[in-house]
Each structure stands twice: as structure tokens, then as C-alpha cells.
């Protein structure tokens, strides 16, 4: 069963030079209990997509498409219902989790106020909160402290607990490991996994640029390129048999232990992603694609190959989605 169904979603940024098409016609689903990883290089629209599902503020504008969470279209909801839906059904751990809390309020006060906004009583959630704090290795005494008194890692774990306190259907975790060292990354991933196993949230969208991390936690992966879906599939399939030239290049560019730069040059992807302000009708990856051919002058639709979905003309014999 699907928890989230996104259909042809378009989220643009209004700039002085025109519309920057950060998310341009993206369709995917998140199933109940599943972890969907979203990967891609910087500026491909991952964060815009994650944030856009929760909160769209200028300059971000919605320019079409739908996103259903249990039959409710997030894109056509009045502000009041949307406000209620946030946190209760769809929640987010932001990229800036380390300073997501007001430095001059006690942590207990912040949580109380957040709960009050959703007509929940803090006293009822207190036990649950203490229990979850213990799970992430925080003493309940921190509730009487100010966020500035905690370390960055503690603050991030605390935000993970706060974000999931109302057991949302869907949790979006946006690049939460990017600023951490490898061992802390591992702890965060483990915590997230534990939280999901214990039912803090039903489904998880895990946004990252780190494919190797994704491999540890995701069930399915969506690879994005320049605001479009390049490929969606089970993580194992994508890693074993990447279809899209971009996915192949992305996996090929992962550094491996035991290989030194001067022995084998790290395979990268030459060139840069296209300017999101000026996108022609051609395939967005064409300029950088080693397999480009004349068909690529036209933007490819999505083809289904086995269980994978891929947006590339190379798989034209596959079934169109």
C-alpha cells in the first residue's frame, strides 16, 4: 500500500532571471513501512522535493502536479489543514538539525509549545518522550537545559526524537549525515533504523548524496538528476545493475579503499549539471552522457525495465510508464 504518491510534481524557484526548475515533473511512490532513498548531486532538487512536500515558502512555488498522502493532496490543501497535517502525518528532520532549536528557550518549553500547537498535552507525551530520549542515549535532565548546552550530535539526536514524537506516517530526513564524521554517521543511521523499527514513523524518505550510506538503510532508491528522476528501483538492483548512464557514473565515482589516486584515476562525471533556468527540450544529461545519440535531443519518458524505472532512450524497448 502506498503512503505517498507523487505525480508529475513541479516545484520551481522564482528568481529575477526566471523560473529555476528545481523539481520538474517528478513522480514516485513511497510504500507503507518502506525507506525510500533519494540520491543525486548537489542542486539536483533533492532538498527542494523533500521540503516542498512539507512547506512551500517563497521563492519556492508549486507549478503543477500532485502529492497524495492517504488521499489528501498536499499541493491543494488550505493552510490550516496543512498545518495540522505537518508533524502529525508528515514530519521532517531538516538539513540544519543541529541548530533547529531556539537557543534561548528551555528544551522542555520548546516541546511543550510544539505539542500545544497540535492540541496535544505535554503531560501525556512525557513518558514517551523520556523513553525515546533514553533510546538515543540522552538523559531526561536535558529537558531543563537550553539547546546551547548540548553538543551538536546531541542536538541532532534530540531533533530526531522531537520530529517523530507524534509518530508521523512519513518522515523526511534531509541530508542529516552530511556534516558528520563517519562514525557519527553510522550512529545516526543506526538510530534512524531503530526508530523506524520501533514504529516512530511508518515510512521514511532518506535524502542524501552519499550512495554508500543509502545502501545501508534504503529499500528502494530514486536517483535524481537536474530536477528529474533518472532512475528508481530496489537498492540491490540499482547497485548490481544500474541502467541509467548517470547512475552508472555515480556508482563508478564512489571512492574505494585500497585504490590510490595515482594508480587508478577516480572515475568522475565530466562537465557540470545544466543551468536550471535554461533547460531545453533535450535530455538533461545529454551533454555529459557517454552514450548520447540523436534520440537524446528529446527528453526521455520513463521506461520500465524489469522492476526498475529509468528515464533514458537506451531502454526504449521497455514499457512506457
Amino acid at each position: 500500500m502506498e503512503i505517498l504518491q507523487v505525480k508529475d510534481l513541479k516545484l520551481y524557484y522564482k528568481t529575477l532571471y526566471g523560473m529555476a526548475k528545481a523539481v520538474d515533473g517528478v513522480s514516485f511512490t513511497v510504500r507503507k513501512g518502506e525507506t525510500l532513498g533519494i540520491a543525486g548531486e548537489s542542486g539536483c532538487g533533492k532538498t527542494t522535493l523533500g521540503l516542498g512536500l512539507v512547506l512551500r515558502k517563497p521563492p519556492m512555488v508549486w507549478c503543477g502536479g500532485q502529492a497524495f498522502i492517504e488521499d489528501t493532496d498536499l499541493m491543494n490543501l488550505d493552510e490550516k489543514s496543512m498545518r495540522k497535517l505537518r508533524y502529525e502525518k508528515i514530519s521532517i528532520i531538516p538539513q540544519y538539525a543541529m541548530d533547529a532549536l531556539n537557543p534561548t528557550k528551555k528544551i522542555r518549553q520548546i516541546i511543550q509549545d510544539l505539542l500545544k500547537e497540535h492540541k496535544q498535552r505535554y503531560e501525556e507525551k512525557q513518558e514517551l518522550l523520556t523513553e525515546r530520549l533514553t533510546l538515543i542515549n540522552l538523559n531526561k535532565k536535558i529537558l531543563d537545559m537550553y539547546p546551547i548546552e548540548l553538543s551538536g550530535g546531541m542536538r541532532q539526536r534530540l531533533v530526531m526524537v522531537i520530529s517523530t514524537l507524534l509518530n508521523p506516517k512519513l518522515l523526511i530526513s534531509d541530508e542529516i549525515t552530511s556534516a558528520l564524521d563517519v562514525s557519527t554517521q553510522k550512529t545516526v543511521i543506526q538510530t534512524l533504523y531503530q526508530m523506524k523499527k520501533k514504529g516512530f514513523m511508518d515510512s521514511l524518505i532518506f535524502i542524501t548524496h552519499d550512495l554508500s550510506l543509502l545502501y545501508q538503510i534504503a529499500d528502494r532508491v530514486m536517483i535524481m538528476y537536474a530536477g528529474k528522476v533518472a532512475e528508481i528501483g530496489e537498492i540491490q538492483d540499482i547497485v548490481d545493475n544500474p541502467l541509467h548512464p548517470y547512475t552508472r557514473a555515480l556508482i563508478g565515482s564512489l571512492p574505494r579503499i585500497g585504490v590510490r589516486y595515482h594508480e587508478t584515476k577516480l572515475k568522475g562525471i565530466h562537465g557540470y549539471p545544466p543551468n536550471l533556468l535554461k533547460i531545453g527540450p533535450a535530455c538533461r544529461f545529454k551533454e555529459r552522457c557517454p552514450m548520447a545519440f540523436n534520440k537524446c535531443e528529446e527528453n526521455p519518458p520513463i521506461f520500465r525495465v524489469n522492476a526498475q524505472e529509468v528515464a533514458c532512450w537506451l531502454y526504449e524497448e521497455g514499457e512506457r510508464v
Binding site: R83, Y87, E88, P94, Y96, D99, D113
Partner: peptide, 16 residues
């Protein structure tokens, strides 16, 4: 500031 955006993403009202 980030804390304002976070509160908004968790459905807080403008007045809070």
C-alpha cells in the same frame, strides 16, 4: 533563522 523554519515545518502557527 533555522529554528523558525523548523517550527513552521512542524506545523507551528505564525503567532508562536
Amino acid at each position: 533563522a533555522n529554528y523558525s523554519r523548523y517550527m513552521e515545518a512542524l506545523g507551528s502557527s505564525q503567532s508562536l
